[in-house]
Amino acid sequence: MGNCRRNRADLLAGLGPEPFLVRDAVARGFTPRQMRHSALTAPYSGVRALAFGGDSLVERALQYLPRLREGERFSHATALALLGCAIYVEPDAPIDVESQPGTTPVRARGVLGHRAARESPPFLLSVPETDQLVPVSPPQTALLQGSARLPFTEVVVALDALIRETEARFDPSVAVRLEDVQALLDASSGRRGAARLRCALGLARIGAESRMETLTRLAGERVGVTGLKLQLVVVDRDGRRIGRFDLADERSRVLFEYDGEQHRTSRTQYLRDLDRLERARDAGWSVRLFHAEEVLAHPDRAGRRMLLATGRSPRPVPVQIRRLLGEWPSPLTVSALPRKSK
């Protein structure tokens, strides 16, 4: 291949779009000088990449993929993010890499190395951003690992995502059953994160379709609003379907909806939702809308609005749950998932 100067198209044709090890490229005939080409980035020592897409936790993990050694896998919060859980992390959160027992944990810039307590096979995951199978901790194990380090509300967000009855982002094999998590907890008494995961399991619900739906529900839980129905299908007085609603109190006939960004960016969606809300009111339901600014910055106020709307008396919140639900998302955290392409 010689030492001739190559443009980006030449490099892409010769190396492909996936991150790669410098030593592998040199073995194929590329020169060290070509590895310093301006079209290449160096996300980790010994790694180069052409298609640097972003700096989310998921994308940074995939850039590390060529450096994974035999038996290593992504774990903890990194595994949960790769599994599609819409958790939020610190902007500079390191990626988590777990090594097998008897081996030295990874030590590298931007990487937090862990050593597994016992040997177990990895869960091979297919993710949209790469053609390679990505080794991660099994979903239930990742939940237990993440529970020891993540803020409590992020653990509930991850649980809600993994017990979802349908999974849009990844293969349905990543979904877990509540009884699977319970079985893991029964076998993990005393392990780090087990007590927190047990509390999160008591608050997890099948049916949440987004991170903000979970957080809206947890805002209610903070002040004692419990037992809301998720994704209730509402019909009109003639039995015709109106649509599904995020949260509902059937006794007081109150619907709670998280009003997301898509309702403002899509005129079609906005008009469709206006019609749906009006029809629900005509059918005898009261509707309360919540926005991210209120739920994230003033969760207790959002919870009290829910309480007032239902006319309920608040149920006492156990001290431990109230303390854990105080671990609310920081405004400084960012999504662990890649930004959606427009």
Rank of each mutant, 00 (worst) to 15 (best):
G326P: 04
G46C: 03
I87E: 00
L289P: 00
R23G: 00
V111I: 12
E119M: 05
S147R: 08
Q132M: 11
L124C: 09
S173C: 03
S147A: 15
T214F: 14
A27S: 14
T265V: 07
L201Q: 08
D249E: 07
V26W: 09
A309C: 10
E167N: 09
A93P: 03
T268H: 11
S126A: 14
E209V: 07
R240M: 11
S120G: 08
A79T: 01
A280T: 06
E250T: 15
D238T: 02
V134M: 03
V89M: 10
P151E: 14
L324D: 08
K340V: 13
P122H: 06
L11V: 10
F245R: 01
A42L: 02
L230C: 14
R237I: 05
S56I: 15
A219V: 10
A158G: 11
R301V: 12
G84T: 07
R240K: 14
D96H: 15
S335N: 09
V295N: 05
S120M: 06
A86L: 12
P91M: 15
E70R: 13
D300W: 00
R196I: 10
Q132L: 14
P128C: 05
E165Y: 08
A200N: 06
P122M: 08
D92R: 11
H291R: 12
D10A: 15
S286V: 05
P314A: 14
L215H: 01
E179G: 13
A204N: 01
S99R: 01
R276K: 15
P318I: 03
Y44D: 02
F20Y: 13
L274G: 06
R69E: 10
F256D: 10
L162H: 04
G46R: 00
L185Q: 03
K229A: 15
A148D: 02
D186T: 09
L62A: 10
F170N: 15
P299N: 06
D273I: 01
G220Y: 02
A13T: 13
A108K: 04
V176N: 02
R264F: 12
R304M: 11
P94Q: 08
A13I: 10
D180Q: 15
S38F: 09
R211Y: 07
R301N: 02
P338W: 04
V235S: 11
I206M: 10
A27N: 09
K342R: 06
S126K: 14
S99N: 05
E72Y: 06
L197H: 09
G110W: 04
R149N: 07
V111A: 09
R60L: 10
R222V: 02
R118I: 02
R264N: 08
L12R: 13
S38A: 14
D238C: 04
V254T: 01
Q140W: 07
L15F: 09
L143R: 01
S210A: 15
S173N: 03
S137P: 05
V22Y: 00
R60W: 05
E213D: 10
V111T: 08
Q140Y: 04
G239H: 01
R217C: 05
F123C: 00
H37D: 15
L68T: 05
S252K: 06
R304K: 08
R276S: 07
A9W: 11
R48P: 01
K342C: 03
R264G: 04
D24W: 03
S266T: 08
I95L: 13
R301P: 00
G284V: 08
Q132I: 09
V254E: 00
L308H: 09
G243M: 04
V134T: 03
